[in-house]
Amino acid sequence: MPGEAPDGPRAGFVVGRTVGNSVVRHRVTRRLRAAVREELPRLPATADLVVRARPEAGTATSAELRRDLAAGLDRVLAERTRSS
């Protein structure tokens, strides 16, 4: 319903044409979705996360995507605790 708060953190994905053709973009999106699912518990319940895939994501392995996502979240969450 409109106006209701989400039950937890949410994630969205931006995977543009520079990543590859449609098949590659969908594969990257599926891999990122799986990686984000593992990381969501680290985020505050009200968080909205947008993951933008760079062109290199088209040839990256799932492990590389997970590693890069975790490193990015480490930086963001560290900055958040420093500024609190």
Score class of each variant (00 low, 15 high):
1 M>V: 12
2 P>R: 15
2 P>G: 14
5 A>Q: 13
5 A>P: 08
5 A>G: 05
7 D>S: 15
8 G>Y: 02
9 P>R: 05
10 R>W: 00
10 R>Q: 15
11 A>I: 01
11 A>R: 01
12 G>P: 07
12 G>W: 00
13 F>V: 08
13 F>D: 09
15 V>P: 07
15 V>I: 04
16 G>C: 04
18 T>E: 10
19 V>D: 08
19 V>W: 03
20 G>W: 00
20 G>L: 07
21 N>V: 12
21 N>K: 13
22 S>L: 11
22 S>F: 04
22 S>V: 11
23 V>S: 14
23 V>C: 07
24 V>R: 09
24 V>W: 03
24 V>F: 03
25 R>C: 08
27 R>H: 10
27 R>S: 11
29 T>V: 06
29 T>G: 09
29 T>Q: 15
29 T>D: 06
30 R>H: 09
30 R>S: 08
30 R>D: 08
31 R>N: 10
32 L>W: 02
32 L>F: 05
32 L>C: 04
33 R>L: 04
34 A>E: 13
34 A>H: 08
34 A>W: 02
35 A>L: 06
35 A>W: 03
38 E>Q: 14
39 E>P: 02
39 E>F: 05
40 L>T: 11
40 L>K: 09
40 L>N: 03
41 P>F: 13
41 P>C: 15
41 P>H: 12
41 P>I: 15
42 R>D: 00
42 R>M: 10
42 R>H: 05
43 L>I: 11
43 L>D: 03
43 L>S: 06
45 A>L: 14
45 A>R: 14
45 A>C: 08
46 T>W: 07
47 A>D: 05
48 D>T: 10
48 D>N: 10
49 L>W: 05
49 L>R: 04
50 V>W: 02
50 V>N: 07
50 V>G: 06
50 V>P: 06
51 V>C: 08
51 V>G: 06
51 V>I: 10
51 V>Q: 02
52 R>E: 13
52 R>I: 13
53 A>D: 10
53 A>C: 04
53 A>N: 10
53 A>V: 03
54 R>L: 15
55 P>W: 01
55 P>L: 05
55 P>K: 06
56 E>V: 09
56 E>K: 13
56 E>G: 12
57 A>P: 05
57 A>W: 02
57 A>L: 07
58 G>H: 00
58 G>M: 03
59 T>C: 11
59 T>L: 14
60 A>G: 03
61 T>V: 10
61 T>K: 13
61 T>F: 05
63 A>V: 14
64 E>T: 15
65 L>Y: 01
65 L>T: 02
66 R>L: 12
66 R>P: 00
67 R>P: 01
67 R>G: 03
67 R>Y: 01
67 R>E: 11
69 L>S: 06
70 A>G: 12
70 A>E: 10
70 A>K: 12
71 A>T: 07
71 A>V: 06
71 A>I: 01
71 A>Q: 14
72 G>Q: 14
72 G>A: 13
73 L>Q: 05
74 D>V: 04
75 R>A: 14
75 R>D: 07
76 V>S: 09
76 V>T: 01
76 V>A: 14
76 V>Y: 04
76 V>H: 07
77 L>S: 03
77 L>R: 06
77 L>F: 04
78 A>M: 02
79 E>T: 12
79 E>D: 13
80 R>K: 06
81 T>A: 15
82 R>F: 02
82 R>H: 05
82 R>E: 12
84 S>W: 01
